[in-house]
């Protein structure tokens, strides 16, 4: 446990010190700020627009941080040969992986926390109401989504080269909503074999859109928070897929000769 904590701490410190997170946050905040400078006729009651733009940019930026941080952890260790002294210590490969993963998740949480602080401060400054319960659930589901994205990026970086891993993880994240609508739309037109394949796709590939509460957070005043049962099911879903990806990563890691 101590080994995992130390490795995670190292990844977090590196992530925080490298200033990439701050750059991502700064660019995102500038982008949102640029949108807010547009003259929208000085009209009241347009907070949905601000909420949607801010949450969209922040979600993308957090996901980009998670994907890049996670995908480059292991390849860089091999490339710089820093993995060899690490593995010479009494640290198992599982502990090493979990430590790296925990560090990435902490760095992602750090990034998300900055964003959410900016979002809350901006919303309150504009005098808009925040549906706190829904907002809290949004943040939690973002973390669950980022856990899946990070573990998936870990596994992809073990079986593909770094660029391909980042690209595939980013595409899966960005296209989650589109793919979800697409599969339900084309399903009735497919043959039996096609339907089996599509069903397999739905259950093999994590459906990230089910963690996206941003639309309800945007139109928040009229939507109640999710029930505890729904939150528990989503947590279990994330746990299953994240564990699966960690398992696959470990399998690929064990097959690598050191």
């Amino acid at each position: 446990m101590n080994a995992i904590r130390l490795i995670a701490k190292g990844v977090l410190i590196e992530g925080v010190r490298r200033r990439e997170i701050y750059a991502v946050v700064l660019v995102s905040v500038l982008l949102i700020g640029a949108v807010l400078t547009v003259d929208f006729f000085d009209i009241e009651g347009i907070e949905k627009f601000y909420r949607e733009v801010a949450l969209l940019v922040m979600s993308f930026a957090t996901a980009a941080t998670a994907v890049v941080l996670a995908a480059r952890q292991l390849p860089r260790e091999f490339e710089n040969r820093t993995i060899y002294p690490m593995m010479a210590r009494p640290v198992s490969r599982l502990q090493f992986l979990l430590g790296k993963l925990s560090g990435v998740l902490l760095a992602t949480l750090f990034c998300l926390a900055i964003f959410m602080a900016v979002y809350v401060a901006g919303t309150l400054w504009l005098g808009h109401r925040i549906p706190w319960a829904l907002f809290g659930q949004y943040v939690f589901l973002q973390l669950l989504m980022m856990t899946i994205v990070a573990t998936m990026s870990f596994w992809l970086s073990m079986v593909l080269n770094l660029d391909a891993a980042i690209s595939i993880a980013a595409v899966l994240y960005l296209s989650a909503s589109v793919l979800s609508s697409l599969v339900t739309y084309i399903f009735p037109d497919l043959t039996t074999v096609g339907r089996y394949l599509l069903t397999a796709f739905v259950y093999l590939v994590p459906q990230l859109q089910i963690f996206d509460l941003s639309a309800k957070a945007t139109h928040g005043t009229d939507w109640p928070p999710l029930s505890l049962a729904t939150m528990a099911m989503l947590t279990a879903y994330a746990a299953v897929y994240s564990s699966g990806f960690v398992g696959l990563s470990l399998l690929a890691f064990r097959r690598r000769s050191l």
Binding site: A215, K216, L234
Partner: peptide
């Protein structure tokens, strides 16, 4: 089912 609960 989860998507119907999470998305509007």
């Amino acid at each position: 089912e989860l998507e119907r609960r999470v998305r509007p």
